[in-house]
Amino acid sequence: MHRFANPARFLRIANALLPWLTVGTVACLGIGLYMALFASPPDYQQGETVRIMYVHVPSAWMALFIYVFIAIASACSLIWRHPLADVAAKAASPIGAGFAFLTLVTGSLWGEPMWGTWWVWDARLTSMLVLFFLYLGHMALMGAFEEQSRGYRAAAVLALVGVINIPIIKFSVDWWSTLHQPASVIRLDGPTIDPSMLWPLLIMGLGFKLFFATLLIVRMKSELMAARVRALSLAQLRNA
């Protein structure tokens, strides 16, 4: 792990990977999109709205996956002072927040034709809303200090406290939701998923992951440069 701790080495590996990741992302998303919109059947019950699932579910997967990624990076930052961990956490957060937001919006767009309402306090949607707020807090804390290193470390603590709380929040919201469950049981997915729908879903999921990896590297490069800019500006101020 510490072989990659050197930013110069990271940059070399990242730059080598970037073209491949870009190609992979575009290819996966392209194929996934084709399958989602053309090569897969409409649902027996939900009709064409089931196609929203092919962007809604991968977004939800990414929102969760990225938060775990940030939590791991935060742990690396606080425990081992890994220099790239902070950069990774800062770069990843807006991507995760965006996917959480997309999950909510596409969920609403799916919900309105299906359940007749734009918002439902369903346990999963509510938990995703809370996750979205956790992301916003993380991003706000990152940028709240004059000295960026303070922001890195405070956000790392917040991310870890958040990740401990996520199962608790999920449990509470599930509990609360079943207590207030309306008569009709709302199911976000349909019955067991058919292979003709599973494959587009998985390929879109992979495409979203590759998109994250590609964009993460771009944003990490920016953040590393920003750190260098800060250091150089400070040095020049001192020498002036």
Binding site: E48, R51, I52, S59, P94, F211, V218, R219
Partner: peptide, 30 residues
């Protein structure tokens, strides 16, 4: 989209918009 166009296309549209906008913004910052 079987009458559901107003739900399906904005879903895909917003997803695409987010991905493209964030990519452009990140590249611009870089």
């Amino acid at each position: 989209m079987g009458g559901y166009a107003v739900y399906v296309w904005p879903s895909y549209g917003l997803t695409a918009l987010f991905m493209i906008a964030l990519t452009l913004s990140s590249l611009h910052t870089l």
